[in-house]
Design a binder for these strands. Structure first.
Lengths: 169, 169
DNA sequence: CATTTTAAGTTACACTATAACAAAACATAC
DNA sequence: GTATGTTTTGTTATAGTGTAACTTAAAATG
């Protein structure tokens, strides 16, 4: 019950997730002399409101409420910054964004996305990385960027469990 | 020089690629009692005009030239059909489509995409599959669909080669 | 404070994809 | 071969995602 990543633990202390993520982000930006402006920090916080990927346009109303301009470029700029700093990832298959739980030296995640509850886990799977790198190397292909996104059912949404969504309406 | 997949061999007989792909598609659809209508076959052929992923909207002019209706739904319907039959794949990170070189029982490809020349290879990499499945199983996650897309430089576009694009304008 | 750089505001638009309904083509049974 | 149901295509309109280009404001630097 405790080896599950937090994203798959419905009852974890999520306020702490958000808090920690913001704290790490501030430290990291400060260290890199990058400016985590109010808009950028708000966008990061909004993204961390859950462990489900959020579309850019879903963030706009909250930006407006907070008194910021809420045209698309605003949120996309913030997202670009956060991606560049490795604080959020874009999930290509969903056109959505999710917070990175272990930001730091540029890395490529492997994402497990539940189609029922949308909870998403980012793995750092060395075997997956290695397999991809070795296949690529074998063909003389130089890797610059990896997209590994796996859709399916998380343990909480498996048929047989009692508490759970399963089929999305 | 010959273990490279065709997509990375600029000089291969590409007419044959197209011809073979269409032949396989006809056989497969006939066997499954699915209708490979003129529009669907044309879209498949257009997609096979190269080994680079093509956007849906890039197909519309050719459809128009061939005398078909060329509104978006036409091409998206054809693409849906071809995807369902496993004849083409969608590359999520590019919003584009590419022909499947080994259609058949549903499979998940692993794509190597050259950022310089756009040539794309579909691998069936058992090690990659296994690594992903094993990571997922370990968390109790049930896989339904995999997206593995790797962007980088193909052997022909590597710095050091003489004949090649490298940096996209 | 003046200057330069970076970020945010603003307008407009491009690209990707689908909904919804009408017309046509095809398949099957009489 | 014609009637009937089903599948495919035509058509219009619109939703969703993302960016270009230019202006204004704020922050950093000298």
């Amino acid at each position: 019950m405790s080896k599950q990543p937090l994203s798959f633990q419905p009852e974890h202390n999520h306020a702490r997730c958000i808090h920690d993520a913001l704290k790490k982000a501030r430290a990291l930006c400060s260290e890199r002399k990058q400016r985590l402006t109010p808009i950028r920090e708000l966008v990061l916080q909004l993204i961390w409101q859950s462990h489900k990927p959020l579309g850019a346009y879903e963030l706009l109303p909250a930006l407006a409420e907070a008194g910021f301009n809420s045209a698309p470029p605003t949120v996309y700029r913030a997202l670009d910054f956060l991606q560049t700093q490795g604080l959020v990832h874009r999930i290509a298959s969903l056109n959505a964004f999710i917070g990175c739980p272990h930001p730091g030296p540029s890395h490529q995640g492997c994402f497990l996305i539940c189609r029922a509850c949308s909870s998403t886990v980012e793995l750092e799977s060395a075997p997956v990385q290695n397999a991809i790198h070795s296949s690529a190397a074998h063909l003389g292909f130089t890797i610059e960027q990896e997209t590994v996104e796996v859709v399916g059912l998380c343990p909480n949404c498996k048929p047989g469990d009692t508490n759970s969504p399963q089929e999305p309406a």
